[in-house]
Amino acid sequence: MSDPDPFSNSSYLEIQKPIVKGFQELKKVTEELGSRTRQLGWKQRNVLIDHVYSDYQKHHQLEFARKEWEEVSWEYKVHLILYELMREYRDIYGYFPEYVEMFSQIDGIIDLAGKQDEFEIAQILLKWKKKLSQKNDCI
């Protein structure tokens, strides 16, 4: 006898709903952060040009533009890593049949971030894991 169709199992679908919804939200946030990173990159470039034309008198503006770009760029990279990891586990139907393994991978990254004192990374990943596993107390 063959395995039952997982899509006919309502608990499987209940597990998938928050994961799929969270993945769609993650995609949107990642795209927005990518766009913001590019905007701030151009802003930083323009401030640098102003700095040069001002005979190097705009140190504070340049430093502010650099820090602003670095913060958003860093956050974008963390989100992009999670997004790419999830894409690897997504099937052709948009579901995540190996979600237990996927959450295990996310937990591994969170643990590693904690061990390396990268608490901001761990915090972002924990936030997303919580969103993805709503109603999935077993994960």
Rank of each mutant, 00 (worst) to 15 (best):
M1V: 09
S2F: 09
S2Y: 14
S2Q: 00
P4Q: 02
P4Y: 05
P6S: 03
F7V: 02
S8W: 09
S8A: 13
N9P: 00
S11C: 05
L13S: 08
I15N: 04
I15T: 07
I15W: 13
Q16I: 08
K17E: 10
P18W: 01
G22D: 00
G22P: 00
E25R: 07
L26H: 01
L26V: 02
K27C: 09
K28H: 07
K28C: 00
V29I: 11
V29T: 07
T30K: 14
E31H: 10
E32M: 12
L33P: 07
L33K: 15
S35Y: 12
S35T: 11
R36M: 13
R38C: 13
R38I: 13
R38W: 14
Q39H: 11
L40T: 08
L40F: 06
W42S: 10
W42G: 10
K43L: 14
K43V: 14
Q44G: 07
R45T: 02
N46F: 01
N46Q: 15
V47M: 12
L48P: 02
L48R: 12
I49Y: 06
D50T: 06
H51E: 05
Y53C: 08
Y53N: 12
S54N: 05
S54Y: 04
S54Q: 06
D55L: 14
Y56H: 05
K58T: 02
H59M: 03
H60L: 09
Q61E: 07
L62A: 03
F64L: 05
R66W: 04
W69I: 04
E71D: 12
V72H: 01
S73H: 13
K77L: 06
H79L: 09
L80P: 09
L82P: 04
L82Y: 00
Y83M: 02
L85Q: 11
L85F: 10
M86W: 01
R87N: 15
E88P: 04
Y89W: 05
R90L: 10
D91A: 05
I92F: 03
G94I: 03
F96W: 03
P97T: 03
Y99E: 01
V100W: 12
V100L: 15
M102Q: 03
M102C: 13
F103P: 06
I106G: 05
D107P: 04
D107G: 09
G108T: 04
I110L: 03
I110W: 09
I110A: 12
D111H: 10
L112N: 13
A113L: 08
G114S: 13
Q116F: 05
Q116I: 06
E118N: 12
F119H: 14
I121T: 13
A122S: 08
I124N: 00
L125V: 00
L126Y: 11
K127Y: 08
K127M: 15
W128D: 01
S133Q: 08
Q134Y: 07
D137V: 11
I139E: 02
